[in-house]
Amino acid sequence: MLKVPLSRLGQAALVMLVVSAVSFVMFRYVGDPVATMSRENASIEEKAELRRSLGLDQPLLVQYGRFLTRTLSGDLGISYRNQRPVTQLIAERLPATLELVIVATILSLAIGIPLGVLCALKPGGIAARLVQAVSLIGISTPTFVTGIVLILVFAVSLGWLPSFGRGQVVDLGWWSTGFLTISGLKSLILPGVTLALYQLTLIMRLVRAEMIDVLSSDYIRFAKARGLPTHYIHFRLALRNALMPVITVTGLQIGSLIAFAIVTETVFQWPGMGLLFIQAVSFVDIPVMAAYLLFVGLLFVLINTVVDILYAVVDPRLRARSA
């Protein structure tokens, strides 16, 4: 029973090792750290001294080993731009991104699944066709366009919601949340909807396709032949089968939402990870970029592992085969 999660963890560690190697190479070879760190008119001796003190004269593998030890102990280096530890920067920005992503995911699941079921059960109905048509717009409009349109309508014209930032946040010491203040919640709505829109259409279409597939399966016909009530067949039996791939997709999407909320965060000037990354790119802030790479890798590996374990919970066929 423990074998599956254990092997998954082993694979996860392997993937992280590769990601860290890429991250290290980037840190070490994209531009010369010594050139970026030392004064403009520093002498060759000064530079050599700095190089020695940074350990850059050591063999490559030794450097990589040091990098790994430092990374594992939570030291990701100092940002060139802010001259602050990268770990600290990420810790500051993470809550903002996570809260945004949680809101977006809940929105997309809560709306996407029922709509998908609706479209599958009444494929010819007016509601289903309308949803299908609108979803096509949702899936084909770029995020920045939706974001800007939403700002224009709800912030500029109607003035109901703020157009940028997180509003007032409550600091819980290790976490700053926007969930506890009215302005914080209001600020979450527009970026949340923007980020959720694509997910929502994706989940809706997936649920619809899966549900149509499941409804034509033999076991659903057999359930009908046993005279079970329709709502029971649809929502208790069929939906569970149809949600299997939704778990995978949602998991992967959460990953890409966190990692690539960049556009939305830029449009709404949301002080999250994405904005941090964009700023790092424009200032060639290598430590931040390398840390971001590591972080995104870790995130995907973690999410995939959780998805695999969740699968085993939902689908008995994937549990231990010894039974």
């Binding site: 399966s217 076991y219 057999f222 032949a225 089968n241 939902v314 008995p316």
Partner: peptide
């Protein structure tokens, strides 16, 4: 009551 052809697919796997 109904009995179907393929016992492999007429029961819900979940």
């Amino acid at each position: 009551g109904a009995i179907f052809q393929d016992p492999m697919t007429s029961l819900n796997p979940l």
